[in-house]
Write a protein that binds this DNA or RNA. Structure first.
Lengths: 66, 66
DNA sequence: ACAAAATGTAAAATATACTTTACTTTATGT
DNA sequence: ACATAAAGTAAAGTATATTTTACATTTTGT
């Protein structure tokens, strides 16, 4: 799964730590998701969508292997 | 987290088994998610959104405790 | 009422999300 | 160049998603 978190953070001028705090998770969790190390739960992606003001589909996109 | 899977299935006239097959998971997984027993990964909610033709936000909604 | 389909439930096993702590590397501002 | 902030990495531990198998209950059609 691809993600656009880095871009969305840049648009809102948020660091990983900022986003983590707003979403209620640790900085490492945001870092790992952003780097594609693992897939967030739907609760977390909904929270990220809320914080970043974009639909889940704009933050995360399925790839061939998914 | 709330979900509208049962309604969306009804709209598309799909059984839990049908939806499971189309999303590439087991029937129990769909059943458990539908009953709120657990939260799907974002990959799965994106797949369900795709199959059901609705955005993730329309299938799943955050609640107070989330 | 009966048969069949659909849904609910459960336990054990496996995979993976997330936290915590802590350290390293890279970017940014002055 | 230097200091500081930001981002990357990693290992151990905990929580939870998902599968498999199997059975019980409920719903639906005739």
């Amino acid at each position: 799964m691809k993600n656009t978190l880095k871009v969305q953070r840049a648009i809102k001028n948020l660091t990983q730590a900022d986003l983590a705090e707003k979403a209620g998770v640790t900085r490492q969790t945001i870092n790992s998701i952003e780097l594609g190390k693992y897939v967030p739960t739907t609760v977390l992606s909904l929270k990220l969508a809320k914080v970043l003001g974009k639909p889940v589909e704009e933050l995360f996109q399925l790839e061939k292997g998914d």
